[in-house]
């Protein structure tokens, strides 16, 4: 079921000082998990001076409007810092939510 899980976030590439960072979201991005996610994602953004962030959606099973808001916030902050944000490998159900609210056009979705 879609909203039974919590959320795990792993960040790859930040420690090595790379300019390309990959963030992996595993589980469910909903009202209960969104606070943690927002904190972590903005932290990543803060540490990164230049380069780009790729968010791997392949293991994200559920996203609600709360989750969409975090992505929107992240996108705004990234644009301000001139950092490129890419979303990768969305599942069909998550993709449909993105499509429905027109976010697919706002983000670089791969």
């Amino acid at each position: 079921m879609t909203s039974t899980n919590g959320l795990e976030i792993t960040v790859d590439g930040l420690e090595g000082g790379d300019s390309a960072v990959t963030v992996m979201l595993v589980g469910s991005l909903d009202t209960t998990t969104v606070e943690e996610a927002q904190k972590m994602l903005l932290e990543v953004l803060e540490k990164l001076e230049i380069g780009d962030i790729t968010v791997d959606f392949s293991e994200l099973t559920y996203i609600s409007s709360a989750g969409l808001r975090v992505m929107l916030l992240l996108n705004k902050e990234a644009t301000d810092k001139n950092i490129k944000l890419k979303l990768r490998d969305m599942r069909q159900s998550v993709r449909e939510v993105f499509d429905m609210v027109g976010f697919t056009a706002l983000f670089t979705v791969e």
Binding site: M1, T2, S3, D30, T31, Y62, I63, S64, S65, A66, S93, V97
Partner: peptide, 11 residues
């Protein structure tokens, strides 16, 4: 259907 109901219910 379950996924739709879940998202709407949460909101």
């Amino acid at each position: 259907s379950v996924s739709k109901a879940a998202i709407a219910f949460e909101e």
